[in-house]
Amino acid sequence: MTAPTQPSSAAELATYIDHTLLKPEATPADVEALVVEALGLGVFSVCVSPSMLPVSVPEDSELKVATVCGFPSGKHEAEIKAREAALAAERGADEVDMVIDLGHAKAARFDLVESEIRAVREATPASVILKVIIESAALSDEEIVATCRAAEAAGADFVKTSTGFHPAGGATVHAVRLMAQTVGARLGVKASGGIRTLAQAREMIGAGATRLGLSGSAAILAEWDGPVAETRADAEGSEY
Rank of each mutant, 00 (worst) to 15 (best):
E114H: 09
E239F: 14
Y16A: 05
V173M: 03
V99H: 05
A14V: 03
Y16N: 02
D30N: 14
T5E: 15
T15Q: 15
V173G: 10
G42V: 04
P167W: 08
C47N: 04
S192P: 04
D157V: 07
V113Q: 04
S9G: 12
A107W: 00
V96S: 07
E62R: 14
D225A: 15
P167T: 03
G40K: 06
A175W: 01
Q200L: 06
A151G: 11
A233R: 02
V36E: 13
V159F: 03
C69T: 02
V65R: 00
I100S: 06
A185N: 13
I129F: 06
D234I: 09
K81S: 08
T197M: 08
E25R: 02
T5I: 11
P72G: 08
V120K: 07
G155A: 05
A3I: 11
T124D: 02
K106W: 08
V31Q: 07
D157C: 00
G74R: 02
S61D: 00
L63Q: 02
I100L: 12
T20F: 00
V132S: 07
A229T: 10
P4Y: 11
S73P: 09
V145A: 01
S140Q: 01
S162M: 07
L22C: 07
K23V: 05
A10S: 13
L22G: 00
G193L: 04
H174K: 11
H19A: 06
K81P: 11
T20K: 07
I129V: 15
S45W: 02
D18E: 10
A89Y: 05
G169F: 14
P167R: 01
Y16G: 04
T182V: 10
E77V: 12
E79A: 14
L178P: 00
D234L: 15
T147C: 09
R232M: 12
T67K: 08
A233I: 14
A78Y: 02
E95P: 11
L22T: 02
V176S: 06
S127E: 15
V145G: 03
T182P: 06
L187A: 09
V68M: 13
A154W: 00
A233K: 10
D94P: 05
M52I: 10
V113S: 05
D94N: 13
V46Y: 07
A107S: 15
M179R: 03
D234V: 13
A86H: 11
E236D: 10
A88V: 07
G213T: 12
V55K: 09
A171E: 01
I134G: 03
I100R: 10
S45F: 02
L102A: 06
V159K: 05
G40N: 10
D157E: 11
V35A: 07
E223N: 08
G164F: 02
G226N: 08
D94G: 15
T2R: 11
A29V: 12
Q200T: 10
D97C: 12
C47L: 11
P24A: 12
V128I: 13
S162N: 01
V128Y: 01
M204W: 06
A175Y: 02
E95C: 05
S238G: 09
I17P: 00
A85P: 13
A154M: 06
P72M: 03
V35T: 06
I117M: 09
